[in-house]
Simulated scan of single mutants.
Amino acid sequence: MTALTHPAAVLLDRDGVINFDSPDYILSADQWQPVPGALEAIARLHKAGIKVTIVSNQSGLGRGMMSQDSFNAIHAKMMLAIEQAGGFISHVSYCPHGPDEMCVCRKPKPGMVLETLVALGLDGQREQALFIGDSIRDVEAAHAAGVTAMLVQSGYGDAESILQKSRLVQTDIQAYADLAEAVAMIMGDAEAC
């Protein structure tokens, strides 16, 4: 699988891709801070007619680390910031479960990716979707759903280790510094790294 130029939809992980992540989780609206250029990149995709969605593990909910109200406040802040930048999110899918709950939605399982494709009417056109994430879980979920993945290295993990592990799942995976750089490639004005 190779990266798509002008896909019909771009599925984004949230933490580490749209906003800065933390090993201690993003637990309040005050902690939510966009990665520089990410909001503008989402707007750029939207203006090009590409549907943008969010597919995110949010186990802080299931672990009781934050309330649904706190999660909703983070989400509202993010959506407002995206809209103020000229972007639009067509669909949001999140998994509130912890890693031991054996759900079908938590990445690296493909449940949220598949649900998003159905919501967008792309279930039979998976080759028209691109998943951008910052972790091996994102790559594995995309691969299991039959969707091409791309990495950004703006998360808090060891970017080189994540890239090497991801190449075992998708050998031709491309990695970019951040969402703005990835979207520049998608839009045809940057070279692959």
Rank of each mutant, 00 (worst) to 15 (best):
L130A: 05
Y156T: 07
A38T: 08
G146R: 05
A144W: 04
L80M: 12
A73C: 00
Y25G: 01
E140Y: 02
P108R: 12
Q153N: 15
E127P: 07
R63C: 05
L27Q: 02
V92Q: 08
A41I: 06
L130G: 05
Q125K: 14
A73D: 08
L117W: 08
A119V: 05
L114A: 11
K77F: 00
M79E: 11
Q84H: 06
A141I: 05
Q58Y: 01
G121F: 09
G157Q: 15
H91A: 13
D100A: 06
L120C: 09
E127A: 14
A41V: 06
G87H: 00
P36H: 04
D123S: 15
G121S: 12
V92L: 12
G62E: 08
E83P: 04
I132H: 07
V104W: 13
R137H: 14
M150K: 09
I132A: 06
A149F: 07
K51I: 04
G62F: 03
V55I: 15
F88L: 11
D123M: 15
A41F: 07
E115L: 14
D69P: 02
L27H: 02
K107Y: 01
H75C: 00
A81F: 02
G111Q: 04
Q125F: 12
T53E: 12
G121T: 10
A141W: 05
Q125E: 15
T116V: 04
